[in-house]
């Protein structure tokens, strides 16, 4: 309690403002009619990375759901799930999902390249947010069209959480994998992976003030008997120890699911698991 500082006097509340203006609704209304009206309805328009991806195309604003906590007490590790309402089969499928945190130093979070073998256009992962912002997901479909979804995320460091980032480098590039024990024909299975890696952004400094060089896992590939299930590009806005939950829909009697991660130093980790369909 003794650390409490003196207060400054009451600040102007919105209610004061409305009361004094005597015409609250009108005033507020006028404030909202601004040149940014167009931008408000297309909130991604001011983000270059997204506009570049869209390349002039107008995305559909329905069909992409982003789930992340409205308030996060630790910006270094925020759960995110993205889902695209679409078939995922030959002829009609989601080709890629792109995640953006526009107010991060590096707006790209990750790109997921899907195939009909993915079975379902749904990915769960964990991301970093430098500050409160709106996170975007853009889906590119096999017919060339785009869809976009977004979600506001507030980041606050809890008073009872300290920023005590320590990374244990033992076990670097060690992965854990969980795959379905067996699948019925046509069933979509869930694959869970995590790999030990600091995902060093290149923005941090060590105790002596020297920049710690960037070192991230930049690519992940999942193949079923040599055919691509999922290919992912990771960026520094993906959280340390990349976590991925995706899906697989094997043809026929299943096969060997091979997972491979590669980092900036060229180190790779490969894991294999048998997927049986019966």
């Amino acid at each position: 309690m003794s650390r409490t500082r003196s207060l400054v006097t009451t600040s102007w509340s919105r209610r004061d403002f409305l009361r004094i203006s005597g015409a609250g609704a009108v005033t507020l209304g006028m404030m909202m009619v601004s040149p940014s009206l167009l931008a408000r309805s297309r909130p991604w328009a001011r983000h270059d990375a997204i506009m570049e991806l869209l390349d002039g195309a107008e995305p559909d604003t329905s069909g992409v759901t982003l789930e992340l906590p409205s308030v996060s007490e630790d910006g270094s590790n925020i759960s995110l799930t993205v889902r695209v309402d679409s078939a995922q089969e030959n002829g009609e499928y989601v080709k890629s999902i792109h995640l953006f945190a526009p107010d991060n130093p590096n707006p790209e979070i990750a790109v997921f390249h899907l195939t009909p073998l993915s079975g379902q256009a749904q990915i769960a992962t964990r991301i970093r947010l430098n500050e409160s912002q709106r996170v975007f997901a853009v889906a590119k479909l096999s017919d060339g069209s785009f869809r976009i979804g977004s979600q506001d995320a507030r980041v606050t460091v809890s008073g009872c959480l300290t920023d005590d980032a320590t990374y244990d480098s033992s076990g670097l590039m060690q992965a854990r994998v969980r795959t379905p024990r067996s699948l019925r024909p046509g069933e979509v299975g869930e694959v869970l992976t995590i790999i030990n890696h600091p995902m060093e952004t290149g923005f941090r400094e060590d105790a002596d003030g020297n920049t710690i060089p960037r070192r991230i896992i930049h690519s992940f590939v999942a193949e079923l008997d040599g055919e691509t299930v999922l290919r992912a590009d990771f960026h520094p806005s993906l959280a340390a120890n990349p976590y991925l939950r995706f899906h697989v829909k094997p043809n026929g009697s299943g096969g060997t699911l091979a997972l491979e991660w590669t980092d900036d130093e060229g180190e790779t980790t490969r894991e294999e698991a048998e997927l049986s369909v019966s």
């Binding site: 630790d74 590790n77 920023d163 005590d164 120890n241």
Partner: peptide, 30 residues
């Protein structure tokens, strides 16, 4: 979680007072 309140202080205290009695396994270690 991978991080928790007063983490460094707690872990120091556990080591100092209780040796290796307490093992903590964070999110990234499953």
């Amino acid at each position: 979680k991978d991080a928790f309140s007063k983490q460094g202080l707690f872990m120091d205290g556990w080591r100092e007072v209780y040796g290796d009695m307490i093992e903590w396994v964070g999110l990234s270690d499953d």
